[in-house]
Every structure is written in structure tokens, then in C-alpha cells.
């Protein structure tokens, strides 16, 4: 993006170029943007601050971001046995991990068929799957509820995982990536008598690392943040996942529990935040790619 990112000159030269890219007339603008950015972060800072305050101080005004008294009591209570928070955390992890794994495997396999193999019905089948891009999740919720009820899967983690594994977008995205890959290597392997499974597993898939990572991030985050599906499909605490579960906890515990709810929300956001700090650029690219789906 900037000249400084293109190569790696010696430290002094790097410092010089870093100074050069600061256009001094941009300084007031940069300051303004940074103030706006801090305002954007305020709700998060306040959330963490409230989680570290003693219960009685949660509503103290003026609101100080940095609590006067630090305490981890809210975290202890959230992680204690009185609240099903740890169970919900585990459920969220299982649902997100299995959904992601399922999407990565089934979508890349289907994409391989559409991008590389010739078979009767290829085009109509692909168009059928593309139609799924327009179907909003809310539209399928009513039949899924009654379907799962009849199968005895209502109020189970499967009711959250199975629908999340069906990803038109994943198939479409992986197909686009595969089409942009050179196929010489695959053709050579075919001539050498390799099976299509070997070609897929040993040659195509390893080239798709970045695409798989992007799709994985999108799927994991979507599942981790999903509120409406568990809200409709899950009834018992030991099957609940985080966002819907924390909202239900807040309703159950009432206003006195602000610091506990904020501690739970902080812990629910933490893994996304940590990954984001490390792989910021990559995640932004992956998430904006999901915008292509419409």
C-alpha cells in the first residue's frame, strides 16, 4: 500500500521512509480519525471496565472506564458452577468448529466437481445451488423448526450444526478460486494414473490454503455470533450457545448482574479479538469477501 511495505531496506532507511510517508498536512485529519476510532472503541472499553468493577459499582456515574477498585469477582461468578456459562462456551466451540469443518470439506469437494469435472447436469445443479445465495436464513427457520421437532433433533447441537454446514456461498467461493488455479499439475497427475480423489486431496486442496482460511474464518465467525437460530431452536441451558445464552442469562439475572453479564460478553468476544489482533488484514479480507455473496 505504501512504499514502506514493499521492500525491507535497512533500519535507518526504513525510519526515513516512515517519516516521509507522514504527509504533515494530513496530521489534523489523522488526529480526527483517531479520536473517532477511540469513540468507536468506547463501548468495548466500557464493557471490559464494567466487568472488572464490583457489582455495586457497575452503575456508578460518572462512568469511569478504569474502575477504581479492580476485582475479578464477576469472572469468577460467570465461570462458577451456578451459571451454565462454561457449558455454553463449550457448545459454541463445538458448533462453530464442526460447522466450519463441515463447510470446508463439503464445499471444497462440491467446488472441485463443478470447477474440474465434466458430468451431466453440471450447469443446472450449479444454478440450483446458486439460488441458495438469495435465501435469507430467516426464511428456512420455520420448516427447520418443525422438521427437527419431528426428527427429535430440536434442542440439540445438531439443529445448529446441520443448517450451518449447507453453504451455497462456500461452494460458489471455492469454485471461483479453483477456476483461477492452473490445472497443468492436475492433468499431469491424471496422465500418471492418479485417481480423482488423489488429485483433489493432494494437488487441488493444498493450493487453496488462503481460500480455505478465508471461508473458515467467515463460517466460524458467523456460527460463533449466531443469535436467531439458538434463540428459536434451542430450549435447554446445557445446549445453549453464547450470544443467545448470554442474552437469556441477562434476562434471568436482572439488573444486579451487569458486571457478570459484561464479563461473560467479554470472554465471548475474546477469542475473536485475539485472532483479529494477530491476523487483522487477513480477517478483513475474508470478511469483506463474504460481502460478495449477494
Amino acid at each position: 500500500m505504501t512504499a514502506a511495505t514493499l521492500d525491507r531496506p535497512a533500519t535507518s532507511a526504513r525510519l526515513l521512509s516512515a517519516l516521509q510517508v507522514v504527509h504533515w498536512r494530513n496530521l489534523p485529519l489523522m488526529a480526527g480519525l483517531c479520536i473517532a476510532a477511540i469513540l468507536m472503541l468506547m463501548p468495548f472499553l466500557w464493557m471490559v471496565g464494567a466487568s472488572l468493577r464490583p457489582a455495586g459499582e457497575a452503575y456508578r456515574l460518572p462512568p469511569s472506564i478504569i474502575p477504581r477498585e479492580w476485582t475479578l469477582a464477576a469472572y469468577r461468578e460467570a465461570l462458577g458452577s451456578g451459571i451454565p456459562f462454561v457449558q455454553m462456551y463449550w457448545n459454541s466451540l463445538v458448533v462453530a468448529a464442526l460447522s466450519t469443518l463441515g463447510v470446508l470439506i463439503t464445499a471444497s469437494m462440491a467446488a472441485f466437481a463443478f470447477a474440474r469435472l465434466e458430468f451431466r447436469g453440471s450447469t443446472p445443479l450449479f444454478l440450483t445451488m446458486l439460488g441458495g445465495l438469495m435465501v435469507p436464513p430467516a426464511l428456512t427457520l420455520i420448516p427447520l423448526y418443525f422438521g427437527f421437532a419431528r426428527l427429535g433433533l430440536l434442542d440439540s447441537l445438531s439443529a445448529l450444526i446441520l443448517p450451518a454446514m449447507a453453504s451455497s456461498f462456500g461452494v460458489y467461493m471455492m469454485r471461483q478460486f479453483m477456476l483461477s488455479q492452473p490445472r497443468e499439475l492436475e492433468e499431469a497427475a491424471l496422465m500418471d494414473g492418479a485417481s480423482y480423489w488423489t488429485i483433489f486431496w493432494r494437488i487441488s486442496l493444498p493450493q487453496l490454503g488462503p481460500a480455505l482460511a478465508a471461508l473458515g474464518i467467515i463460517t466460524f465467525t458467523t456460527s460463533w455470533n449466531n443469535y436467531i437460530s439458538p434463540f428459536v431452536l434451542i430450549k435447554s441451558w446445557d445446549k445453549m450457545t453464547l450470544p443467545a445464552g448470554i442474552v437469556a442469562l441477562q434476562g434471568l439475572m436482572g439488573a444486579a448482574s451487569v458486571s457478570v453479564v459484561m464479563a461473560a460478553a467479554t470472554m465471548a468476544i475474546l477469542p475473536l479479538l485475539l485472532v483479529f489482533l494477530v491476523a487483522q488484514r487477513f480477517i478483513i479480507e475474508g470478511m469483506t469477501m463474504s460481502g460478495l455473496k449477494q
Binding site: V21, L33, A37, M40, N225, A268
Partner: peptide, 25 residues
């Protein structure tokens, strides 16, 4: 526009973090 990388990193972090987290939370 041209900006030091650290500033750009911070701006992207602050504006994109809300996108990443659950609306419900």
C-alpha cells in the same frame, strides 16, 4: 491517503472490531 502503518492498523482495528463481534452481545 498516505499514513504511517501503525495509524492505519489502529484505524482498521477500531472501525472493524464492531463488525467482527456478535450483534446480540
Amino acid at each position: 491517503r498516505q499514513m504511517p502503518r501503525a495509524v492505519l492498523y489502529f484505524l482498521r482495528l477500531a472501525f472493524f472490531l464492531p463488525v467482527l463481534v456478535a450483534t446480540a452481545l
